[in-house]
């Protein structure tokens, strides 16, 4: 631990310990020098220990389950039968799997696009508002973020209810035909629109507030200079704002992708815990295989496939991230 302080300041990023010039102000002892490489590990140890202790075994368990025939009986007895890749084979040869994958990808794609797009617009709007209005909108976003998730979903469900739905009432009042006693989840396209609204509504506050915070770091002089040079609003955004904001966009897009790909609670609650198969996304399917029909092995395999797909989808960003981190 002492090594933290004895380490010379200039070493942090540019030089590796070996080629670092001797420290000017303090003369570390030989022992301290020997311990120096251990410093980062010491710092990391507590967090990694917790993660390994609590998450390590369950992750291993999830993976091993996916290679087993594992039902309720096996669960209660505590041991399954190893069946190799059978679960994966079953899933990958099931045409339903590909439907669900495509559906999940499209859903997540649209949800991320909408969240990021609307988030950016709201963030830009925030920047252009006068102070009182800006505070008001920020407070609104914050309140929406603070709302209990399950309650928020239930309220949206209510808004789109068959008999008591405020949306049906409003549309009927506005003279739109066919929305009196209308079931929004009859047609999956409409149903997913509602689900999308709920998901995007829930994600927007985090994204908008974060992006707005990011915008405050874009040098105003630069934008002003561009404007003086005759650049339009879009060009300023495209060539000045966007490059500065790129890292934030990347992080938010990755997080949104992960969250929207895994979307579960919204669908589960909106469809009264009984979604029909046309509303299955990967997360719902995995849960339903596990807890609905108690095929835990297959449910685990779907979860593993989900993680792999997510890795593929986000690999672009992960690579960028690694590049930033260095070798």
């Amino acid at each position: 631990m002492r090594a933290v302080e004895t380490r010379p300041p200039s070493s942090r990023r540019r030089a590796t310990p070996a080629e670092r010039p001797p420290a000017p102000r303090r003369r570390p002892g030989a022992r301290a020098r020997r311990l120096r490489p251990l410093v980062p590990y010491t710092l990391l140890a507590p967090a990694l220990l917790v993660l390994a202790a609590i998450l390590g075994f369950p992750l291993y368990r999830l993976l091993s389950l996916s290679f087993q025939q594992y039902g309720l009986k096996e669960l209660f007895a505590g041991r399954g039968t190893f069946i190799g890749l059978r679960n994966y084979q079953d899933i990958l040869t099931d045409p339903f799997f590909w439907t669900v994958v495509a559906r999940t990808m499209v859903f997540a794609g649209v949800a991320v696009g909408l969240t990021m797009g609307l988030g950016t617009l709201v963030a830009l709007l925030l920047r252009n508002l006068a102070r009182p209005m800006r505070v008001l909108v920020t407070a609104g976003l914050v309140a929406a973020w603070a709302m209990p998730t399950l309650t928020a979903i239930s309220i949206w469900q209510w808004m789109f209810d068959f008999e008591f739905g405020v949306v049906n009432w409003l549309l009927t009042r506005l003279g739109v035909d066919g929305f009196e006693q209308h079931n929004w989840f009859d047609q999956p396209l409409q149903g997913f629109t509602v689900i999308m609204i709920v998901v995007v509504w829930g994600a927007l506050p985090f994204v908008a507030i974060t992006l707005h915070a990011g915008l405050t770091q874009v040098p105003a002089e630069l934008e002003e200079a561009a404007r003086v040079d005759g650049a339009g609003a879009w060009q300023v955004f495209r060539h000045i704002t966007l490059p500065v904001m790129k890292p934030i966009f990347l992080i938010l897009a990755t997080l949104s992708t992960i969250w929207d790909f895994k979307v579960f609670t919204q669908i589960w609650v909106l469809l009264n815990q009984r979604p029909s198969r046309e509303y299955f996304l990967l997360g719902i399917w995995s849960y339903s295989e596990s807890f609905g029909v108690t095929r835990y092995g297959k449910g685990a395999a779907i979860a593993v496939i989900m993680v792999i797909l997510l890795l593929l989808v986000t690999s672009f960003y992960v690579r960028q991230m690694l590049r930033a981190v260095g070798p």
Partner: peptide
């Protein structure tokens, strides 16, 4: 200062070990 930092580290480690 040094001891304070050490104390924080020690606390963190203790927490983990305590949990374990």
């Amino acid at each position: 200062r040094r001891s304070r930092l050490t104390a924080i580290l020690a606390l963190a480690v203790a927490l983990v070990l305590g949990v374990a």
